[in-house]
Design a protein around this nucleic acid. Structure first.
Lengths: 249, 249
DNA sequence: CAAATTTGTCTATTGATATAGACAACTATA
DNA sequence: TATAGTTGTCTATATCAATAGACAAATTTG
């Protein structure tokens, strides 16, 4: 009773085109090591047979992955895997953007995309323990490692207590450092809720993804050591480039 | 600079058909509470305008969701939301299947789908601290809550130490109870790595999903209190029905 | 150099996807 | 009982997705 292992799993008339399904399969094969990095993919005819589709359909999938920078095709030689492995992004009580990526990348930083003051939505108000409609500061940021976007986040802070945190963030490029300016020397992650969905238009633009990509979504509340909520955030990670490692708290 | 909030995010020629993208958006709107349960959806013409597509395209999306049992359409009246919210599945040092779902569902259990003895793959061997190729027992299980599948998992145990755990699992329906028969009274989750991908054919079948659905994937190692690895597992959760709540370890 | 292998390009055909418009069928309400 | 609002069905058309076959262009190998 073996051999059903990976099995053919191409679904027709599913709303997802065959070339996109095959592109996903190839991405997954790279992620699991089935297709080694820098090695050649099987030739197009072999892939077509393997997935039970026409060669041109395989070509569409490959062409999309070449567009995404995952593969490089060379006429007469073959098609080669470029993509590196996924980043392993640590999540725990003391999650900090740069701390946990040490050793995996040579360069990493956070870019402040936008900031605004707005009334707290019910969800944000509940997370921060504020009255509904209280003013909060929202920071939109993007995390980058080795020049590639690896996260996209919105963070909300109580506007009264953290007035000017947007400027601090713009200067320091670090939420930890910005919070320190307001007397927050330490903070803990109180809760994290995790889900996944297809990337929307904003995700596609900010994370440099192709349509159909998946994002991991975390919704988290950070608190001071004495339990006072200071930050509510929603982060999105491109599933093809990032995995989340849940570390001991 | 407001008003980009949810924004239109329908992508054309992306390999994912418009009706499937809109179905996903509706599912998400239900999950976030934008479309309340048991309430009527906006009429088809309104939805078509909202997403910038033809009414017939919206109808295709709705028809798929009716097929999935999420919506019910009534001629002359409207289209109504049937689906409940996502289950919030706790992940932490003492993750147990049924413990954390209390209060969210009335009925829950684990079904043993299959079991086998096989040589440990490099990944499994490393997780369990065994020599590559050592014999391990694999259990394939499905978790159900209120009659709907909410997880699908493969778990590996050292074959020598846990010979017969497959039968124990079939009898008790509980991994915790089965481990207790082998003298394991307590265990902790040592590590969890999280990712997301499109469901493959086996996921679609076992989790009762439609093509294009997303699954959350966790890869975890459980250890005894003194740090000895006893269980390596890979679990898949349907993202449309489950979210993962990371609890304090 | 010749042959084999592999990717690239072209034409043609079929079926699925998306748009457009018109009208029927059913429900709720004034 | 009209009328307005909603879902259901039909026809028609244009574009995208997938298959099929043939051959060109580049590379590697004997």
């Amino acid at each position: 009773m073996t051999g059903h292992d990976v099995a053919d799993s191409i679904e027709r008339r599913s709303g997802v085109s065959l070339w996109r399904q095959i592109a996903d399969r190839i991405l997954q094969a790279i992620a699991t090591g089935d297709f080694a990095e820098n090695a050649a993919l099987p030739p197009e005819v072999a892939l077509a047979e393997r997935y039970g589709v026409n060669r041109h359909t395989v070509r569409s999938a490959i062409s999309a992955l070449v567009q995404e920078g995952v593969l490089r095709a060379e006429q007469g030689r073959g098609t080669f895997v470029l993509s590196r492995k996924r980043l392993s992004y640590p999540i725990g009580a003391r999650t900090r953007f740069s701390a946990g990526l040490q050793g995996q990348t040579s360069e990493r930083h956070i870019v402040l995309l936008a900031s605004s003051i707005e009334p707290a939505s019910p969800r944000v108000a509940e997370g921060l323990g504020l009255a509904r409609g209280s003013e909060v500061i929202r920071l939109e940021t993007r995390g980058e490692a080795d020049g590639r976007p690896v996260s996209r986040a919105a963070a909300w802070f109580e506007a009264r207590r953290f007035a000017g945190i947007d400027k601090a963030m713009a200067q320091t490029g670090s939420i930890t450092a910005s919070l320190a300016r307001f007397g927050v020397d330490d903070y803990l992650r109180q809760s994290t809720v995790l889900s996944a969905r297809h990337a929307d238009a904003a995700d596609l633009a900010d994370l440099d993804l192709q349509p159909g990509a998946i994002v991991l979504v975390t919704v988290a509340v950070n608190v001071t050591p004495d339990g006072q909520p200071i930050q509510f955030s929603e982060s999105r990670f491109p599933a093809e480039r990032v995995e989340l490692k849940l570390s001991a708290l």
